[in-house]
Write a protein that binds this DNA or RNA. Structure first.
Lengths: 137, 137
DNA sequence: TTAATATACTATTATAAGGTAGCATTTAAC
DNA sequence: GTTAAATGCTACCTTATAATAGTATATTAA
């Protein structure tokens, strides 16, 4: 019931940016505000750029900004772009061929338990979060 | 939204054993039926033994059996004993001090999303699973 | 008491995730 | 053009998880 560290970072960064979505953010600024290591953040941002959630401007006075509006970015989009689709689906017992039609013994329990999670993350957009105090930590 | 491989194995093994809970199962039998590697399964079983879910009988004609009845073993007990308590709780954004009183921006969303998971795993016991075809994979 | 058949323990190896380093590339101010 | 300030790329290092190997210990049947 954990997401990867990389997902945590991606959600933190984009939540922070969503508070003022039209701004251009430099890597330096994000690093200092959110306390994420330099090179790791850049890698992550490159990934988010390639997946189309943000765009980057290279060179002097460059930085990152939203490519889609926060009203159009679902939380699941962020997780999916970092972890690869379906990372957080799949059988809890690790069976390859487990499905609704051919369920493992824990299938029903697992599917119901994660339904709320998937439901929330595929319907909530970035702007729906209460972004007050987004960088207070 | 994943559990560790070790949790997967633990759930698989105990689900299998729960179909005939009074039986004494040898490591060999579990390995052959469930296709888990020899030494890894033994390590795992030693851990489950220490956490009090099963007991082991050493020596010739030994094996593993339930220390608690499947009706008394919650799915969360199994996961907790393998992963350590609270492995699947904690803040989705990785903030140490995030709590109901001092929530991060995603706290509310996250708490609601995982509620069903925690609810299910802390209330469902092993015997409540539909154990038909537990070893068909 | 010996041999056979179990589990227990400890150390090692392999793989994946997380994180770091250095150089290359791009762009705007001057 | 040159320089400064920004992102991009690739390779490497570190740490944690997963898996393996070998030896020790326990128990029972003969």
């Amino acid at each position: 019931m954990k997401l990867s560290k990389t997902s945590e970072y991606a959600l933190r960064i984009l939540s922070y940016m969503a508070k003022d979505p039209s701004q251009l953010y430099t890597a330096k600024q994000l690093i200092e505000t959110l306390h994420i290591s330099d090179k790791y953040l850049r890698q992550l941002m490159t990934g988010l750029t390639k997946s189309g959630l943000i765009y980057s401007i290279q060179g002097r006075d460059g930085g990152y900004s939203f490519a889609k509006k926060p009203t159009e970015i679902f939380l699941s989009d962020i997780v999916d772009s970092v972890e690869g689709m379906n990372r957080y689906t799949g059988c809890i017992l690790g069976f390859e061929h487990c499905s609704d039609d051919n369920p493992c013994v824990m299938h029903k329990v697992w599917v119901e338990a994660r339904k709320e999670f998937i439901q929330t993350f595929t319907t909530k957009t970035l702007d729906k979060l209460n972004l007050e105090g987004v960088n207070k930590f």
